[in-house]
Design a protein around this nucleic acid. Structure first.
Length: 173
DNA sequence: ATACCGGCTAGCC
DNA sequence: GGGCTAGCCGGTA
């Protein structure tokens, strides 16, 4: 019987719902979403109590046990390590997992990211530098997020995915 | 088993 | 640079 708490947190990329267990964050959703809808989805996914808590209690740690394992879990962990202001390509993540042809599967994994922002799937772009797709808000949102983190972007492409994050770059979440 | 489906890529105009 | 194609792979029905 797990206790899941949740709150609406203010982030550098707007308001987001975040839910967490004692181990860390376990679910997230865009802040525009209806609260009852989010809470309902939590009750469907996790057995036990779901209660609202204060935003200041929201963790930055991830409850990896509540997330998918296997290939997807490994890719999510790799994505989690991409620093702000940097990007990696779908193909790079695939190669890092020893599955060099699985770029497209990485894309699918990003599209079903259970913790957007905390697991920064917006930092995963196409191999040719183009921004690629983004589930919530589309490529325009993805571009805005990358720019907000200090990535140099021209048109729909990132110029350098490995620039060090400028001073004052906002932390994850 | 088997047949799709996708936040992709490499190759070729 | 752009546009198109076939190939790719993990996940899901």
């Amino acid at each position: 019987v797990t206790l899941v708490r949740y709150s609406l947190v203010t982030t550098a990329h707007g308001p987001w719902w975040v839910a967490w267990t004692t181990a860390g964050a376990c679910a997230s959703s865009e802040g525009e979403r209806d609260e009852a809808d989010f809470a309902r989805s939590l009750r469907a996914r996790f057995r036990g109590e779901v209660v609202r808590a204060g935003a200041d209690e929201a963790p930055t740690a991830v409850d990896w046990g509540a997330l998918p394992g296997g290939f997807r879990g490994a890719v999510l962990r790799a994505c989690h390590e991409i620093p702000p202001g940097q990007t990696r390509s779908y193909g790079e993540l695939a190669r890092a997992e020893g599955a060099p042809g699985a770029a497209r599967a990485v894309g699918t994994t990003m599209a079903t990211n259970p913790l957007p922002l905390l697991i920064p799937c917006h930092r995963v772009v196409r191999g040719d530098g183009r921004i690629g797709q983004y589930g919530i808000g589309g490529p325009a949102r993805k571009r805005a997020m990358l720019e907000a983190e200090g990535c140099r972007v021209e048109g729909w492409s990132v110029l350098d995915g490995r620039l060090p994050a400028p001073a004052g770059t906002v932390p994850d979440r």
